[in-house]
Computed example of a mutant assay.
Amino acid sequence: MINPIYSPLPERYDSGMKYRRCGKSGILLPEISLGLWHNFGDVDTFANSRAMVHYAFDRGITHFDLANNYGPSYGSAEETFGMIMKKSLMPYRDELFISTKAGHDMWPGPYGEWGSRKYLMASLDQSLKRMNLDYVDIFYSHRYDPNTPVEETLQALVDIVRQGKALYVGISKYPKDVAQDAYYYLEERDVHCLLYQGRYNLFNRAPEKEGILRQAKENGTGFIAFSPLAQGLLTDRYLHGIPDDSRMAKGKFLKKEVLTDRVLHKITALNEVATGRGQTLAEMSLSWLLKDDSVTSVIVGASSVTQLSDNLKALENTSFSAEEKEKIEMISMDFHL
């Protein structure tokens, strides 16, 4: 059967999605963005991947977050997204904010990872071809490279913008001191650092404790959170054991050893707070990240339209009472996973 031409919902910007100013810039990002780290590779069903992207856009999600090695296999998430762009989303390119990154392992040899100019330039060229794009909206240095002069990495970002291959640039997971150097270097060359992407959730409060959130704000840079559900721990999925089809059962990115008695106790306690708010634990975990303006957007992953729909329910209540905040602090603040 030939799929009909996709037409997005006319009311997609009236569906309840809210948008936040990204640092000191002209960019507004949806409070929830869709990440394509998992479930969009060549091992996954294309029809399901396409359905999730269409559903996201129909609900006002304009930002799609990728990286060169997302899949599996490496590069295949970008290829999947490229097919969706070509088949249905290309007429709406100017409504989309598309990101990709380079920094982690991508191809064999000494130039297939980290932060050299050679790697970043080659990687982005390949990403653009896979995604059927002339440019990305933002290109990230995916991680700090301690062995390459940071000036080389940052100058590559500057030149990528000047070549028109990315409209904006960002950094991901950089240590605080190096991040400050990056902000200064880029600003001095009139290429503002639009976004800092960092791991942030109720079980990982490092961006707060290390001052990354405050630093980004002071430099006019937005902060976008990934892994908001701690790879699925901050859901009700593991309250009664480890499901056979779960990420933990597969054991690649989330190990069974993580689910200790202490972790399970904290998940249970947080779930009770969520129930008292009329939310699932996943909804509350996402809402908590959006409770103030320190976070520009939260990147969620999804394996189905139903799961993505459930995640979007978090937007219905991002306010927390003083009592709820205190309970959550008592459970999570002294804990790091």
Results as ranks from 00 to 15, higher is better:
residue 3 N to L: 07
residue 3 N to K: 11
residue 3 N to A: 08
residue 7 S to R: 15
residue 8 P to D: 11
residue 9 L to S: 15
residue 9 L to V: 08
residue 12 R to V: 09
residue 18 K to R: 10
residue 22 C to I: 03
residue 24 K to A: 15
residue 25 S to A: 13
residue 30 P to A: 03
residue 30 P to T: 01
residue 32 I to L: 15
residue 32 I to A: 11
residue 35 G to S: 05
residue 35 G to N: 06
residue 36 L to T: 14
residue 44 D to W: 08
residue 45 T to Y: 10
residue 46 F to I: 13
residue 48 N to V: 14
residue 48 N to S: 12
residue 50 R to E: 13
residue 54 H to M: 06
residue 56 A to G: 15
residue 58 D to F: 05
residue 60 G to R: 02
residue 61 I to C: 01
residue 65 D to S: 06
residue 66 L to Y: 00
residue 69 N to M: 05
residue 69 N to F: 05
residue 70 Y to K: 11
residue 72 P to Q: 08
residue 73 S to L: 08
residue 79 E to D: 03
residue 80 T to L: 03
residue 82 G to S: 11
residue 85 M to A: 02
residue 86 K to C: 02
residue 87 K to T: 15
residue 90 M to S: 15
residue 91 P to D: 01
residue 92 Y to C: 06
residue 93 R to D: 11
residue 93 R to V: 13
residue 99 S to A: 15
residue 101 K to G: 04
residue 102 A to G: 15
residue 104 H to K: 04
residue 106 M to H: 10
residue 116 S to G: 11
residue 117 R to Q: 13
residue 122 A to E: 15
residue 123 S to Y: 04
residue 123 S to W: 01
residue 125 D to R: 11
residue 126 Q to Y: 07
residue 126 Q to I: 14
residue 127 S to L: 06
residue 128 L to S: 00
residue 130 R to P: 02
residue 133 L to E: 01
residue 135 Y to T: 05
residue 136 V to R: 00
residue 137 D to M: 05
residue 138 I to T: 10
residue 140 Y to V: 12
residue 140 Y to Q: 12
residue 142 H to V: 03
residue 142 H to W: 10
residue 145 D to T: 03
residue 149 P to E: 09
residue 151 E to W: 06
residue 152 E to C: 04
residue 158 V to A: 04
residue 159 D to R: 05
residue 168 Y to G: 01
residue 171 I to G: 09
residue 173 K to W: 08
residue 175 P to N: 06
residue 175 P to S: 09
residue 176 K to G: 06
residue 181 D to I: 10
residue 182 A to Q: 07
residue 186 L to K: 05
residue 186 L to H: 08
residue 187 E to Y: 06
residue 193 C to N: 10
residue 195 L to S: 11
residue 199 R to M: 15
residue 200 Y to D: 00
residue 202 L to S: 03
residue 203 F to Y: 14
residue 205 R to G: 02
residue 210 E to W: 12
residue 211 G to H: 08
residue 213 L to G: 00
residue 226 F to L: 05
residue 227 S to H: 09
residue 230 A to G: 02
residue 233 L to S: 10
residue 236 D to I: 00
residue 238 Y to C: 02
residue 239 L to P: 06
residue 240 H to I: 03
residue 242 I to R: 07
residue 250 K to W: 09
residue 252 K to S: 12
residue 252 K to N: 14
residue 253 F to C: 05
residue 256 K to L: 08
residue 256 K to D: 10
residue 258 V to S: 07
residue 258 V to W: 10
residue 259 L to K: 02
residue 259 L to Q: 04
residue 260 T to Q: 03
residue 274 A to V: 07
residue 277 R to A: 04
residue 278 G to T: 03
residue 280 T to R: 03
residue 293 D to F: 08
residue 294 S to L: 03
residue 298 V to K: 06
residue 305 V to C: 12
residue 306 T to W: 10
residue 307 Q to Y: 08
residue 308 L to T: 12
residue 311 N to Y: 14
residue 311 N to I: 03
residue 312 L to Q: 05
residue 314 A to D: 04
residue 315 L to K: 00
residue 316 E to M: 07
residue 319 S to E: 13
residue 320 F to L: 04
residue 322 A to G: 01
residue 327 K to R: 14
residue 328 I to K: 04
residue 329 E to P: 00
residue 330 M to C: 08
residue 330 M to A: 15
residue 330 M to G: 14
residue 332 S to H: 07
residue 335 F to Q: 08
